[in-house]
Design a protein around this nucleic acid. Structure first.
Length: 208
DNA sequence: GGCACGATCGGCT
DNA sequence: GCCGATCGTGCCC
């Protein structure tokens, strides 16, 4: 497990979401629970930028669900979707500016035994955190972790890790959004097996 | 490897 | 009511 002194400072998140997002690649997210600790090395993230981004949950203003995005940087926004999954974001920028960086994929570098127990359907280690809902399931993050401070001494922390050389960072359109422009706000590490393949949004089939 | 489809419920219009 | 910042299974190549 990374040393506590390796934690990212809060100032890391006090920048624009497009500055922070690529800088998150290669960083280590740790969730230390009574069961044990799991470490995830981030390989793919997506930026969601404030009230002017139609893809953002905060586009239509503040609500009970998305309030954390309007709060201070360095906290986690966790939401529930598709009736069964959770996804997690990291909040950036100044208080009042609703932002989030969705953690889309990671490589589990420590605690993979525990992660496999939490994700018995994963066929192999690569699938433990390939995809945003899989990632939070390996880390056992749920809606009860919404608002948690990732820059403090709590169970959920983020550490420096080893960012990839700049030439290995790729960008492209985000995944699965209906009403948002194709901004290149998805960032990933080139050649990582845990990065999900691009899937454009497909409208639901109408039952006539 | 890729593609189609069903599951399942909270949030929002 | 509608739809989603998704995943697992089944089937085909």
């Amino acid at each position: 497990m990374p040393e506590p002194t390796d934690r990212l400072p809060r100032s890391f998140f006090d920048r624009t979401v497009l500055e922070v997002a690529p800088d998150l690649l290669g960083r280590l997210v740790v969730h230390d629970t009574p069961e044990g600790a799991v470490t995830a090395r981030l390989t793919e993230v997506e930026a969601y930028d404030g009230p002017n981004d139609p893809g953002s949950h905060a586009f239509r203003g503040r609500s009970k669900r998305n309030g954390t995005m309007f709060g201070p940087p360095g906290h986690v926004y966790v939401y529930f979707t598709y009736g069964m999954y959770h996804c997690m974001n990291l909040v950036c920028g100044p208080i009042g500016m609703p932002t989030g960086i969705l953690l889309r994929a990671a490589e589990i570098t420590e605690g993979s035994d525990l992660a496999r127990k939490r994700r018995p359907t994963a066929k192999n280690d690569r699938d433990l955190a390939r995809g945003p809902a899989r990632l939070v399931e390996s880390l056992a993050v749920t809606r009860s972790d919404d608002g948690a401070d990732i820059c403090s001494t709590g169970p959920l922390t983020i550490h420096h890790g080893e960012p990839p050389p700049e030439g290995f960072i790729r960008t492209g359109p985000r995944v699965g959004l209906r009403d948002a422009p194709d901004y290149p706000w998805r960032f990933w590490i080139d050649g990582e097996p845990t990065v999900s393949t691009y899937r454009p949004h497909v409208p639901k089939r109408r039952t006539s």
